[in-house]
Computed example of a mutant assay.
Amino acid sequence: MFCIVMARANGTYWLGRSITAGLSRSRKAARLLEGRHYVTATRWLNRWGAPAITVSFMTIGIQTMINLAAGVTKMPLRRYLPAVTVGCIIWAFIYGSAGFLSLVAVERLWQRSPALVIALGVLAVAGVAWAVLRKDKPSAVAHQGAAAPEPQAN
Score class of each variant (00 low, 15 high):
Val55Lys: 00
Ala153Phe: 15
Leu123Trp: 00
Phe93Met: 14
Gly99Ser: 08
Ala92Phe: 06
Ala119Lys: 06
Ala140Thr: 07
Ile89Leu: 03
Val39Leu: 13
Ser18Ile: 11
Ala70Phe: 08
Glu150Pro: 02
Tyr95Thr: 01
Cys3Leu: 13
Thr42Val: 09
Met1Asp: 08
Ile62Asn: 04
Ser113Ala: 14
Trp48Met: 14
Cys88Ala: 10
Gln144Ser: 09
Leu101Phe: 07
Ala41Gly: 03
Ala148Thr: 12
Val125Gly: 04
Gly11Cys: 07
Asn154Tyr: 09
Ala52Gln: 04
Val39Asn: 10
Arg112Cys: 14
Thr12Gln: 00
Leu133Thr: 05
His143Asn: 14
His37Ala: 13
Pro138Asp: 02
Thr85Lys: 01
Arg78Cys: 09
Leu33Ser: 06
Tyr38Ser: 02
Glu150Trp: 06
Ser18Val: 06
Gly35Trp: 14
Ile19Pro: 00
Ala119Tyr: 02
Ala115Ser: 12
Gly22Lys: 05
Ala70Gly: 03
Gly61Ile: 14
Leu15Met: 15
Phe100Asp: 11
Val141Arg: 15
Gly49Val: 03
Tyr95Lys: 04
Leu109Glu: 05
Val72Gln: 03
Ala147Asp: 15
Pro114Asp: 08
Ser139Asn: 04
Trp91Arg: 01
Val106Phe: 11
Asn154Phe: 15
Arg31Gln: 12
Arg47Thr: 11
Leu116Cys: 08
Ala142Gln: 07
Gly71Val: 10
Gly121Gln: 12
Trp44Asp: 04
Val104Thr: 13
Trp48Asp: 11
Ile118Met: 11
Ala30Trp: 00
Leu32Asp: 03
Met65Ile: 04
Ala52Trp: 00
Thr42Asp: 09
Phe2Thr: 04
Arg79Phe: 15
